[in-house]
Amino acid sequence: MSTDKEDLDVDDEVVAEDPVDEPVETAKTNLSKRRTIDNLLEERRLKKQLADYDFDL
Results as ranks from 00 to 15, higher is better:
residue 34 R to H: 05
residue 56 D to S: 07
residue 43 E to I: 09
residue 35 R to V: 04
residue 1 M to P: 03
residue 23 P to Y: 01
residue 55 F to M: 02
residue 28 K to N: 08
residue 6 E to I: 14
residue 34 R to C: 02
residue 57 L to I: 12
residue 49 Q to R: 15
residue 16 A to V: 14
residue 55 F to D: 12
residue 11 D to C: 06
residue 54 D to G: 04
residue 42 E to T: 13
residue 30 N to T: 06
residue 57 L to A: 05
residue 36 T to H: 01
residue 25 E to V: 03
residue 25 E to S: 04
residue 21 D to A: 15
residue 25 E to R: 10
residue 7 D to F: 13
residue 20 V to D: 14
residue 30 N to H: 02
residue 28 K to C: 00
residue 12 D to M: 11
residue 5 K to Q: 12
residue 13 E to Y: 06
residue 24 V to I: 13
residue 18 D to Y: 11
residue 11 D to S: 05
residue 11 D to A: 03
residue 1 M to L: 03
residue 2 S to G: 10
residue 33 K to N: 11
residue 38 D to T: 08
residue 11 D to T: 06
residue 9 D to Q: 15
residue 46 L to D: 12
residue 1 M to N: 05
residue 41 L to W: 02
residue 8 L to P: 01
residue 5 K to P: 03
residue 40 L to M: 11
residue 42 E to N: 09
residue 46 L to H: 08
residue 4 D to K: 08
residue 27 A to G: 01
residue 16 A to K: 14
residue 55 F to R: 14
residue 55 F to G: 02
residue 46 L to T: 14
residue 41 L to S: 08
residue 33 K to W: 03
residue 13 E to S: 05
residue 22 E to N: 02
residue 43 E to V: 10
residue 45 R to L: 11
residue 52 D to V: 02
residue 35 R to S: 05
residue 38 D to H: 08
residue 33 K to Y: 08
residue 20 V to A: 14
residue 5 K to V: 07
residue 10 V to W: 06
residue 8 L to I: 14
residue 48 K to A: 04
residue 22 E to H: 01
residue 2 S to L: 05
residue 39 N to C: 06
residue 21 D to C: 05
residue 47 K to P: 00
residue 3 T to N: 12
residue 41 L to M: 07
residue 44 R to F: 07
residue 19 P to S: 10
residue 30 N to M: 04
residue 24 V to D: 00
